[in-house]
């Protein structure tokens, strides 16, 4: 059992609260190259994930990594979340997980 390095659920707006720490978010891919993905966060912000994205990429991709600044994540883990992911549900979860129910997550 190890809870020393949790990854906070974030959307674009919440990213700034976690700069320098481990985060997880889901991005809708706008464009990608070999070393980064530019995507739209579930609350509509543009977020860049740096690292080595999987090939092929689906429309939605989850990245887990360290928040470099308020719109960049240095991604360590990438997971394709498919083409039909429900971003608004995820966005609500991010709010709950950073608000009233933070103690269940961090």
């Amino acid at each position: 059992m190890d809870i020393s390095s949790p990854a906070a659920f974030v959307n674009g707006g919440l990213l700034r609260m976690h700069v320098g720490r481990k985060v997880r978010t889901v991005l809708q891919v706008i464009r990608s190259d070999i070393a980064s993905v530019m995507g739209k966060s579930t609350d509509g912000f543009q977020v860049v994930a740096k690292g080595s994205p999987p090939v092929p990429l689906t429309s939605y991709v989850e990245v887990i990594g360290v928040a470099e600044n308020e719109n960049t994540i240095r991604a360590e883990l990438w997971t394709n979340f498919g083409d039909t992911f429900d971003g608004s549900n995820y966005d609500q979860l991010c709010r709950l997980a950073n608000g009233e129910f933070k103690h269940l997550f961090l």
Partner: peptide, 26 residues
């Protein structure tokens, strides 16, 4: 040490389930 004695471990195929799971936790 706390550990899980697993009955079932299956890959998640629909990733809305991930969101759903955490909402269920709440």
């Amino acid at each position: 040490k706390t550990q899980l004695n697993v009955f079932s471990a299956r890959p998640v195929t629909n990733f809305d389930e991930v969101t759903c799971h955490f909402i269920e936790c709440i």
